[in-house]
């Protein structure tokens, strides 16, 4: 079935397996009564169950919590946080500021983009090794056509979050996974290749852990949506407490104009 028939078959009704609510009665979440069966569930566990339909162990949930905690930086200079803070300073609403800040976190050079590229790399590297290829050969081939995401950092190649996350993974007995170990092997090979500035970064480590937990790239992409969220409200709150408009006020002279010189609008045709 396709075309208008396909659309007509879906008109006026929601057919779903993921859940529904009947106000005044009950709510169902992926085949379970939310209040009866899931009322004591940890929020992150529920979030992951909603994404994947699978359950995760308490140790995995603890580590996944840690992934979010260790990168919650309330620094209003960081671009996504700055959106939240500017919303506070401009006297917009918290939900608008935080939602927009989350939206811009799906960036090409940090957040969603590199993390998704990194887990995609680890999953494909694992498949290549499974098919008998050497990891180094796969990396050489990969480097011919694209970056290896998960390695390198613009400002300082040392990522301060990694020892803490690696330690947490060890405490939870989750540091022996195939992709986690591969992440360090990739870093070692990159160093041997002379790419000393390509040290593992946070996206590299968290995506390796995500792959070890059986997350697909698409599932991992949704998991990391709120990853920076906890750092954003402090930025909004503080900016809202200060006099309005005082976050990064820019005088006219601080705009470095590099365009064409002054010209006449009416005279442009002549």
């Amino acid at each position: 079935m396709n075309g208008p028939e396909l659309l007509a078959a879906h008109t006026g009704i929601l057919r779903t397996k993921v859940g529904a609510c009947w106000p005044g009665a009950r709510a169902v979440f992926r085949g379970h009564d939310l209040h009866h069966d899931l009322h004591n569930t940890d929020w992150l566990e529920l979030y992951l169950f909603g994404i994947t339909g699978r359950r995760f162990t308490p140790r995995q949930i603890k580590l996944l919590h840690g992934i979010w905690v260790l990168t919650s930086y309330p620094d209003a200079r960081i671009w996504n946080n700055r959106v939240a803070a500017l919303a506070g300073s401009s006297r917009s609403s918290p939900v608008l500021g935080l939602a927009a800040a989350l939206a811009v976190s799906g960036a090409r050079i940090y957040g969603g983009g590199p993390s998704l590229c990194a887990i995609d790399f680890f999953l494909r590297a694992g498949q290549a090794v499974d098919s008998g290829r050497e990891l180094r050969d796969f990396m050489v081939e990969e480097l011919k056509s694209r970056y290896i995401y998960g390695y390198g950092r613009p400002i300082d190649s040392c990522d301060e979050r990694l020892p803490w996350l690696a330690s947490l993974a060890g405490e939870q007995g989750l540091d022996q996974g195939r992709h986690f170990k591969m992440a360090f092997e990739v870093e070692k090979i990159l160093l041997e290749m002379g790419k000393a500035n390509l040290r593992m970064n946070y996206a590299g480590m968290i995506s390796a852990l995500g792959a070890d937990f059986g997350l697909t790239a698409g599932e991992f992409n949704i998991f990391i949506v709120p990853m920076f969220l906890a750092g954003m409200p402090p930025c909004w709150v503080e900016a809202a407490e200060k006099p309005e408009g005082t976050l990064f006020p820019t005088p006219c002279g601080e705009i470095a104009y590099q365009g064409v010189s002054i010209r006449t609008w009416r005279g442009r045709i002549a």
Binding site: T250, E254, I255, A256, Q258
Partner: peptide
């Protein structure tokens, strides 16, 4: 980090207020 660079827009300030 202290200036915004642009080829689109330039503003001149009022004499009594740089903002």
């Amino acid at each position: 980090t202290d200036k915004i660079h642009t080829r689109i827009w330039r503003e001149e300030a009022e004499h009594d207020n740089p903002f």
